[in-house]
């Protein structure tokens, strides 16, 4: 684990080479636990494999996604994920149609309950997938969101 993290970090340093050269980034500032491979993965399966150790989470009705059926502006899509699964370690949000599907991963600490809310960008109409990792396993549910105007620019 330590080794792969180190690899990831090294790769990240190369990618950010220009910044480092400009002295804007010192190695100390690079985040040790930001899962670069998962965040830069272009396929959802690879992102999940890297992030939670499985590409095939178990479908669960104990996870609820609150998101609009139709998002007029893909740049700002409000997403709330709630789950009453026990011993939740993390809640991650993915958008299947985005260039890099993994959007955010919330690591729950002491006392935190299964609830997170944020706003994400969606490039096009796609499924929003919420993945909950517990001490028991990895679970997910999804919801389709229609996007009228894509929010990934370009």
């Amino acid at each position: 684990m330590t080794d792969t993290t180190r690899r990831t970090l090294l790769k990240g340093s190369i990618a950010l080479g220009t910044l480092s050269a400009a002295g804007l980034l010192s190695p100390r500032l690079l985040l040790a636990d930001w899962p670069e491979a998962a965040f830069t993965a272009k396929e959802m399966e690879k992102a999940l494999q890297d992030l939670v150790g499985t590409a095939q989470p178990t479908a669960s009705d104990k996870i609820k996604i609150k998101a609009p059926d139709i998002a007029e502006n893909g740049a700002v899509v409000p997403i709330t994920v709630e789950s009453d699964l026990e011993e939740i370690e993390s809640i991650s949000i993915l958008a299947s149609g985005n260039a890099t599907p993994l959007v955010a991963s919330f690591q729950l600490g002491e006392g935190a309950i299964g609830f997170v809310s944020t706003r994400i960008k969606m490039g096009k109409t796609a499924d929003v997938i919420a993945v909950v990792k517990t001490a028991e396993g990895v679970y997910s549910t999804s919801k389709n969101v229609k996007v009228t105007i894509g929010g990934c620019g370009g």
Partner: peptide, 15 residues
């Protein structure tokens, strides 16, 4: 209590 790891896929001026 919580650590959020984000990509650029979180909207501008994040909530």
């Amino acid at each position: 209590v919580m650590t959020a790891l984000w990509s650029g896929g979180v909207s501008k001026n994040p909530y």
